[in-house]
Design a protein around this nucleic acid. Structure first.
Lengths: 221, 221
DNA sequence: CCGCATCCGGGGCGATACTG
DNA sequence: CAGTATCGCCCCGGATGCGG
């Protein structure tokens, strides 16, 4: 194994996680939960199959990933994070938070996008500002699979799926959705720029952050 | 620039920071403050000179690093973090915290060690548990350059240097020092295993964490 | 001495094809 | 579905050179 050869905890962490694609694999497992090899491929557009297999082996050896043979009716191998792997959440979210301003200029021409990836900014920025009121559900449509924002016990939960009768439906381009979630763009202004809001506007603004949060702002141009 | 091609803040962050050595360069600048090319080389044993120059250019282009031409009497170029670069501290410390358990088994045979690297674990684990008492100074000697632990205004500060009349001097092998700092090893037991403590023991235990903190423990074997 | 640029060998990486 | 096999390419590591 290639190592930095430094007795430093950051260097040791990067010895295990610093290779290409490794942290993105952890991201997928963190956001999706245990999933199949094929699901990982779908969530990691562009990764070579041998690399994915290699990384999964390395992560397994490092105690970050565990594979379990799911019995019938699934009958396939599932890859999931170990508790030790779950402990990477803080580090991944810290890096993801640092990266938020980099999204301000919108996706590059060939950028892939999955709605699931908005989970991280959502977890970082959305809060239930009126937890005493009845719970709400908001459906978000930016990529292919819709996402749900739910308020439960004063907390905001994000997960895949769609609701039968959501309080609001938010649909628009990925960068627009993201700018609204991170507080870089006012809701009203986002609508003027093409964001589509159906249903209760107050439900949406209930979970949105107050003002622009990251230093560089988001989608200000 | 090689990119993951994903419209995700973590992927965008790794586009800039994911290359080999990049985050370790940021570590050095974070721990050392602005420093010269040669100082960086010294703090990054094993890096190739062209790689260091490349990375510094990339980081400069990304707005993470700024170079300043220091006038006389220094007359050299200094590399330092921009405010945007300083914002990486949380992410680096989160990764470093995750890596603490990896240090438990001690350094690998060829591992380099710099006392400065203990700054990160120190910042993460040391606290002034009796901030109302008079400030103290502890000198730590594990690598070549000694470090100082100081209590100032209820906070613990770490920096390079040595004191004229410290309240205590801690010297020993890197893994022993680290195990004590991270709370993986009791102070008394560390002394039995070769750690040398001169001066006030209570000064040392005043800043040490209460119990073993990381899950896997440290230097338990 | 400081801050690189250049050259070169090896291997990690990317893309595709293929298989139990 | 879950990988393995193969093949370029370019990143990386190590050495050397070189202008200021």
């Amino acid at each position: 194994m290639r190592t930095y050869g430094q007795y430093c905890s950051l260097a040791k962490a990067l010895d295990l996680l610093g290779d290409r694609w490794t942290l993105l694999i952890v991201r997928e497992l963190l956001l999706q939960g245990p999933c199949r090899y094929t699901d990982l491929r779908r969530g990691l557009p562009g990764i070579a199959t041998n690399l994915l297999a290699d990384r999964l082996r390395e992560l397994e050896a490092a105690g970050v990933v565990a594979r379990e043979e799911a019995g019938p009716p699934i009958a396939t191998t599932l890859f999931g994070l170990t508790p030790r792997g779950e402990e990477l959440k803080d580090a991944l979210y810290a890096l993801g938070l640092w990266g938020i301003p980099l999204m301000a200029e919108g996706p590059a021409p060939d950028d892939a996008f999955r709605n699931l990836w908005t989970t991280m900014p959502g977890d970082l920025f959305l809060r239930d500002r009126t937890p005493d009121r009845p719970p709400i559900t908001i459906e978000v449509r930016a990529g292919e699979d819709p996402m749900l924002i739910e308020t439960v016990d004063g907390e905001v939960r994000l997960r895949r799926g769609s609701a039968e009768d959501p309080d609001a439906v938010l649909s628009g381009s990925p960068d627009m959705i993201l700018a609204v979630i991170t507080g870089g763009l006012d809701l009203a202004e986002a609508e003027a720029r093409g964001l589509c809001l159906e249903g209760s506007r107050s439900s949406v603004s209930r979970v949105l952050p107050e003002r622009a949060a990251p230093a560089s702002g988001a989608a200000s141009g």
